[in-house]
């Protein structure tokens, strides 16, 4: 470890800084996964209920992808 006494404090500060800046990216990625899981799940449930497998599941997955990628694009093209 370097002799610098503030080494640990500075490391934590930089870590905190990077985590903070990655917040919006994390939000977008969770929305992407969440959208696919949520709408895929709703589609699967509808298929089970109506016996239309796999129409609603595929539709739900596609819808989830669209919503997730739209949110991702909004985060990326913000500036």
């Amino acid at each position: 470890m370097p002799d610098d006494p503030d080494f640990l404090a500075r490391s934590f500060k930089y870590l905190q800084d990077n985590v903070r800046r990655s917040g919006p990216a994390a939000a977008a990625s969770y929305t992407l996964i969440g959208g696919i899981v949520l709408f895929g799940g709703v589609g699967y449930a509808l298929d089970e209920w109506r016996g239309t497998s796999p129409a609603f599941l595929l539709g739900g997955l596609l819808l989830g992808l669209v919503v997730g990628f739209y949110d991702l694009a909004k985060t990326v093209f913000k500036k």
Binding site: Y30, T31, G34, L38
Partner: peptide, 13 residues
């Protein structure tokens, strides 16, 4: 799409 996104965020959490 935006309205669906509204619900997706808390769901992901």
């Amino acid at each position: 799409i935006e309205i669906m996104g509204l619900f997706v965020r808390p769901f992901a959490l």
